[in-house]
Amino acid sequence: MTAESPIIQVDGLVKRFAAFTAVDRLSFSVNRGEIFGLVGPDGAGKTATMRMLAGVMRPDGGAIVIDGVDAVADPEGIKPHVSYMPQRFGLYEDLTVDENIRFYADLFEVPPALRRERASRLLAASGMSNFGKFRAGQLSGGMKQKLGVACALVHTPKILLLDEPTTGVDPVSRRDFWRILYGLREDGVTIVISTAYLDEAERCNRLTLLHSGRALYCDTPTELKKRMPGALIAISSMDGRAVRSAITGKPGVSQVLLVGDGVHAVVDNSDLRIPQLREAIGLAGVQVSGIAVAVPSIEDVFVALLETGQAQ
């Protein structure tokens, strides 16, 4: 294996539940030491994909190769090097923080001295040094997630699989969480994270947009934004609804979204359309404080891509 070859290679992955196809010929690859995002709405197939990567669910087709090991044929072969954090809190709520960490350390046969050193470092890093004797069930949602990461990391895995780790976690804890992930990347851990929050997708090195079990795009956030069909125009106004009704359906306008301080509109050509929109708004007699081209967020790109139906 060379350092350049991907650590995870997924090819034509398929998972069906009865008549429903959760994952449909999904392919992507993850490079060593990057944070890779599986981004998509609920039901896009993120959890099924994560479970197949973790070796706890058998695919109905396709191949997964992790660090040179065929994970479909030999799921046990990859488990010592992979840590998986399921979407639902999977630790023992009736065990304390220390007992949970010890349990997972023992399952991965971490020597006791190493375990103690790592456990105290991991708990300190997430501000939980004083919570060792607390039952896991007594912790807040954010702390539970951090404990989950601590348990997942106590054996220093090569790959960390996180299935929607920040769902239901407050913004401050989310930022702490991402700080921990960046720290891990520094240590050379490859991280695959799934999320339904499109703002989090921006934090990944590369990501794949999932929809109905299929990959729409797989690229860096910057490259994905370049694929935005047309341009995003932000119109600032106190009366967003009036702006929306004034410009909806005008030529070249594919999408109009209400945002806090006005409206975001997707147009095919900004130079051509901005004067036209100005005119339409003026005719409707709506006051606006500015019309300008805006940098699209991943959310804008995702919605625009879904609209145009440009799947790869």
Partner: peptide, 13 residues
């Protein structure tokens, strides 16, 4: 029932 199985089976046990 408590949702701990998913994590347990992802370990080398």
């Amino acid at each position: 029932e408590r949702g701990t199985m998913e994590l347990l089976v992802s370990t080398p046990v």
